[in-house]
Nucleic acid binder design. Structure first.
Length: 531
RNA sequence: GGCCCCAUCGUCUAGCGGUUAGGACACGGCCCUUUCAAGGCCGCGACGCGGGUUCGAGUCCCGUUGGGGUCACCA
């Protein structure tokens, strides 16, 4: 492997907004490739048709390019090892799966989802580890052929070793040993003919001649499966390196999640962060920056500094908290580094760069103000930051029964949070992002089947979250103009501002929320279309 | 719960057997200043615990605790 040129990759799946974790891995992978004079590949892992989201792929391209993480080969620019979209490589996966089956290293499995669920349930009841019971592993060849010929649906599973242990070598951790008894016969080819991540990524990493797999820590538990797969296919295992997971700023430092932290790269762009600030901050995670002459670390640095000084081996393994305060501080430094001309250009681009958008804003403000001077007062939330107002987000409620006023306030805050979270999930799925589509989604949410809130109250909440105000141009038109990343970002901000003031809803409150929704649905069996 | 991974200030980190455990963010105070930033100075603040190894452990080993990840026909 040492004689091969270094090739790294990121393989995001187009299932939603481009994630900061993708940016983090992209940065590290790109730096490693560039340092070695190798190539950095972008591959789209779109093997899950159920979660596929139109527009997500373009958003990934835009987000990575905004950050300056340019790839050498990828779906939009091609390359010698393409195609770079897994949905266009189905034949390759099928071929390799067939090869494994023919060699007896994988097998056809005809078990239904239902049977698998039953097996799992029984195992749970017996407090055993839940795993596939390998019912189809020893099926006679004749029977397999017959059932296949009869058109019975099946998947391909990898025949894992059942005894001994599998050792994978992690660049940062050394050997990681897993008892084979804990591994299961992982599905390689799904019933729909698409490969699972395991098959697709191993086949692609080999064919694309990836030398270093640098990915998030959450993949460690899959690494032994990949090792077995690589071996079964007769492929050399690339260098494996699992990076620490970005964490939320909560007590337990859980894996970064959108409820607790803005996770969309686009959020940061729309909030007016500088790409070099983002990159710098991401570079701090697990690394800390290049050394100064006196041995201390330089915290404010650029991509060039990182290219010169970064060493994968220096990565710390503790999960770093994605701390917005620190990000702002780093970003501020980069902003101050801008010349007067550069800053002005950035401000213009941020505020007025999009002529179409600006016109749409102007059209909404035009007849609603009396002088030109009134423009900014009404349009501020379109152009810049919104200060979240928990007082507007949480409806005033009178105490009921035994409730103290404090109890009532707490309950109202929990309800607002939970409703807002449902709204965020629902709006996340709105495509395309138009006033009409948003209004439809909004009206649907304001039904007993969904939030159970009146549209008047629900829209007030939405308006407060998205604009920070009580009086604005028409809500859904404004949201269309504002755009999806900003609206969803602000919904998330609103969630966090409620939580900051009143705390996050307790588990009990969540359960109550779900129970009430269920009850409302039973009371209102109609409106299936809304479900 | 099984398996795996991790562990220095609240946070990002330095430390690679001998340090008053260093820097940065945040926080508090003071200075500068018409205001606000920026900047300067000071303060607050950490090696989870218990055993070893060693003349000597934040640093090495073991255990424990805590946290995280993962247990899908999702990636």
């Amino acid at each position: 492997m040492a004689d091969r040129p270094v090739r790294t990759r990121i393989a995001p799946s187009p299932t939603g907004d481009p994630h900061v974790g993708t940016a983090y891995m992209g940065l590290v992978n790109m730096v490693v490739a560039r340092q070695a004079g190798g190539q950095f590949v972008l591959r789209i892992d779109d093997t899950d048709r159920a979660r596929y989201r139109a527009g997500s792929e373009d958003a990934i391209f835009a987000a990575l390019r905004w950050l300056g993480l340019e790839w050498d080969e990828g779906p939009d620019k091609g390359g010698p090892r393409g195609p770079y979209r897994q949905s266009e490589r189905s034949a390759l996966y099928r071929e390799h799966a067939d090869r494994l089956v023919a060699a007896g290293k994988a097998y056809r499995c005809f078990c239904s989802e239902q049977r698998l669920a039953e097996v799992r349930k029984a195992q749970e009841a017996r407090k055993e580890t839940t795993r596939y019971d390998r019912a189809c592993r020893e099926l006679p060849a004749g029977e397999v052929a017959a059932r296949l010929a009869a058109g019975e649906p099946s998947v391909v599973r990898l025949a894992m070793p059942t005894t001994g242990e599998t050792v994978v070598h992690d660049l940062l951790r050394g050997p990681i040993t897993t008892p084979n008894a804990d591994l299961q016969d992982q599905v390689l080819l799904k019933q729909d003919g698409f490969p699972t991540y395991h098959l697709a990524s191993c086949v692609d990493d080999h064919l694309m001649e990836i030398t270093h797999i640098i990915r998030a820590e959450e993949w460690i538990s899959s690494a032994p499966i990949h090792k077995v797969l690589f071996d079964a296919l007769g492929f050399e295992v690339p260098v494996l390196c699992h990076m620490p997971l970005l964490r939320n700023d909560d007590k337990n430092k859980t894996k970064i999640s959108k409820r607790k932290n803005p996770t969309s790269i686009l959020y940061y762009r729309e909030a007016g962060y500088l790409p070099q600030g983002m990159l710098n901050f991401l570079g701090l995670m697990g690394w800390g920056g290049p050394r100064e002459a006196d041995g201390t670390q330089k915290e404010v640095f650029g991509l060039g500094d990182m290219l010169a000084a970064f060493k994968l081996e220096d990565i710390r393994l503790g999960g770093p908290v994605f701390d917005l305060d620190k990000l702002k501080y780093i970003n501020a430094h980069h902003q101050r580094l801008l010349s007067s001309d550069e800053y002005l250009a950035q401000v213009k681009a941020y505020l007025f760069g999009d002529e179409r958008r600006l016109r749409a804003v102007a059209d909404l403000v035009h007849k609603r103000t009396e002088t030109l001077g009134g423009f900014l007062g009404m349009a501020d939330f379109f152009l810049g930051d919104v200060v979240q107002r928990p007082d507007l987000l949480v409806p005033a409620r009178k105490p009921e029964g035994e409730q103290t006023p404090a109890d009532a306030a707490k309950a109202a805050a929990e309800e607002a949070w939970l409703v807002l979270a449902d709204v965020l999930d629902a709006l996340d799925k709105v495509e395309p992002w138009t006033a009409a589509g948003l209004e439809e989604a909004g009206r649907t949410l304001a039904t007993p089947r969904e939030t159970g809130w009146k549209s008047r109250d629900l829209f007030a909440l939405l308006r407060a979250a998205v604009t920070g105000k009580t009086a604005t141009p028409p809500l859904f038109e404004s949201m269309e103009v504002l755009g999806k990343p900003r609206c969803l970002g602000r919904l998330g901000d609103a969630l966090r501002s409620i939580a900051a003031q009143h705390g996050e809803p307790s588990k009990k409150a969540r359960e109550r929320h779900e129970k009430r929704k269920k009850e409302r649905r039973q009371a209102d069996p109609g409106g299936e279309a809304a479900a």
